[in-house]
């Protein structure tokens, strides 16, 4: 990854690029999402997932959850930069908390041709306890939630079934510290 200076940086200072989930509380006002996203893109950091919704109507607060990859030093710099933004109340790296929980939701639409496929799909859906949202003759829509990892596994398993067509949407992870 890029260093924060134009000069070469001691090699061992960076390296371990790891996944972090950042949880940010902001005043719900125009421009704040753009500022946050710009902070990432302007520095060449990638956003793997992003979720934003109002969580406190009375105080007009939104919670933004961002999944990103980066070395520890880069992530702490991002957190410090986020905390400088005027509408930001707090920015936390969930990975730094002793206890935090994550969840994600995914909707999957599967088109299939035959019974054999249907059975396999049903089987996986059952194992992963996904909820049937809609079922038609050749189409089924499931809702599955849990950690991103669990959803990945479910999708991997589905992909072992030949000849089906999968379309999906994921919320990206959301998380809370305790």
């Amino acid at each position: 990854m890029s260093s924060t200076s134009v000069y070469p940086t001691p090699i061992n200072a960076f390296k371990q690029s790891k996944r972090s989930v950042l949880s940010i509380i902001v005043d719900n006002e125009p421009g704040i999402l753009a500022r946050i996203v710009g902070l990432f893109s302007g520095r060449g950091y990638n956003i793997e997932a992003l979720n934003v919704t109002v969580v406190d109507i009375k105080n007009n607060l939104s919670r933004i959850t961002i999944e990103t990859l980066g070395e520890e030093k880069v992530i702490s710099q991002i957190i410090a930069q986020l905390e400088k933004l005027v509408p930001v109340h707090s920015a936390t790296n969930l990975a730094n908390l002793s206890e935090s929980y994550e969840a994600e939701i995914c909707l999957v639409k599967i088109e299939f041709d035959n019974n054999e496929q249907d059975q396999k799909i049903l089987n996986f859906a059952d194992i992963y306890r996904s909820r049937t949202v809609q079922k038609r003759q050749n189409i089924v829509v499931y809702e599955i939630s849990g950690t991103s990892e669990r959803i990945n596994k479910f999708l991997d398993d589905l992909n072992t079934i030949g000849g089906i067509k999968v379309e999906l949407v994921r919320s990206g992870p959301i998380g809370l510290g305790i």
Binding site: T4, S5, P8, T9, P10, Q77, A80, Q81
Partner: peptide
């Protein structure tokens, strides 16, 4: 060059901007 910058010093930093600390 950063890897040769003041190699033997203990460093104290006073800065109102948190993001300037440990940046470079």
């Amino acid at each position: 060059r950063l890897d040769a910058f003041s190699p033997d010093s203990v460093k104290f930093h006073i800065d109102i901007d948190q993001s300037s600390i440990n940046k470079n």
